[in-house]
Computed example of a mutant assay.
Amino acid sequence: MDEEIYMLALILGLLIFLGIHSTRLFAADWREHQVQRMGLTPWKAIYSLVSLIGLVLIVWGYGQARLSPEWLWVSPVWTRHLAALLTIPAFILIVAAYVPGTHIRARVGHPMLLGVKFWALAHLIANGTLADLLLFGGFLAWAVALFIVLRRRDRLAGITYPAKGVSRDLIAIVLGIVAFGVFAMVLHGPLIGVRPFGG
């Protein structure tokens, strides 16, 4: 019974978190109406609160479900190393979303979503429980769908993201690698309960 509760919390958290992060795309008119009705700052506060609730449910549900895993497949040990390798570009892409004027953004348009795809795929390769499939599969499906739709909108609207110099890309790459190192070596174990490189 407890396992069902944990899985339900994970699914509900995913629906809430990914749902609120899709309002600009799939419910743009409703979002605009809410912003006009209550103001941008209250909307952002509610948006952040709903996102936090979803994230807490995801973390709690996934963390508890991992204690009694329901295995769908067992990945070879080497996939952990492949997952770590794929996570490096994920961090670089996510950082590039916040560094203006990179060639990375000019090329892919939405590096955050591409980074989420790398992250989710990497973890799907190395993990084979039902909770893993729901969490990483959910994020992967969401990122793929959103990336396709946004790229299509960019093309139709003629939107481009001009690059301002290679130095911006170097900043994104260095910060991304540093962030990966800190998270993988220091934070992943205490927060997730798994140390990617053992120890």
Rank of each mutant, 00 (worst) to 15 (best):
L25T: 13
L25A: 04
F26C: 10
F26H: 03
F26R: 01
F26K: 02
F26P: 01
A27M: 11
A27F: 09
A28D: 07
A28Q: 09
D29N: 10
W30S: 12
W30D: 06
R31E: 01
R31L: 08
R31A: 14
R31V: 03
E32A: 10
E32W: 06
H33Q: 10
H33S: 10
Q34A: 14
Q34L: 14
Q34R: 11
Q34T: 04
V35K: 11
V35T: 10
Q36T: 13
Q36H: 11
R37N: 11
R37G: 02
M38H: 09
M38L: 10
L40Y: 06
L40E: 14
T41Y: 02
P42N: 05
P42V: 13
P42R: 09
P42L: 05
W43G: 10
W43D: 13
K44A: 04
K44F: 14
A45N: 09
A45I: 15
A45M: 07
I46H: 08
Y47V: 04
S48Q: 08
S48H: 09
S48Y: 02
S48D: 03
S48K: 12
L49Q: 01
V50R: 01
V50M: 09
V50F: 03
V50P: 09
S51G: 12
S51N: 10
L52M: 14
L52C: 02
L52N: 04
I53L: 15
I53D: 06
I53S: 15
G54I: 01
G54Y: 05
L55D: 07
V56E: 08
V56C: 07
V56L: 15
V56R: 07
V56D: 12
V56F: 13
I58E: 11
W60Q: 01
W60N: 06
W60G: 00
W60M: 08
G61K: 06
G61C: 02
G61M: 07
G61Y: 12
Y62A: 05
G63M: 07
Q64E: 15
Q64W: 05
A65M: 02
A65C: 00
A65N: 04
R66L: 12
L67Q: 15
L67H: 12
L67C: 01
S68V: 14
S68H: 13
S68Q: 12
P69H: 05
P69S: 08
P69V: 06
W71E: 12
L72H: 08
